[in-house]
Amino acid sequence: MEVSLTNNILAIVTLESNKDKVEGGGAPVFYVEDEEELEYVAMLISRLTLSMAHNLGNGVYILVKH
């Protein structure tokens, strides 16, 4: 049987400069160098975990499986 964690934050991706906006908690935090890496990492984790990347509008991306 397949068990998956839905409607939870699976991972957080953000720029190194946004460190003060995110605190580690239930989900792993990925700090990235620039926008391009941000995009790529978010997309990759999204595909791999079958989750959706959401842009919180403040430079922080969260990955949530719906």
Binding site: E39, A42, M43, S46, A53, H54, G57
Partner: peptide, 22 residues
Amino acid sequence: KGDEGENIAIGDVIIMNVGVKE
């Protein structure tokens, strides 16, 4: 809608928030 247009909306209803630019 939103700073980078990340919120897809029709009228006043925001339907989906898409993070990946592509």
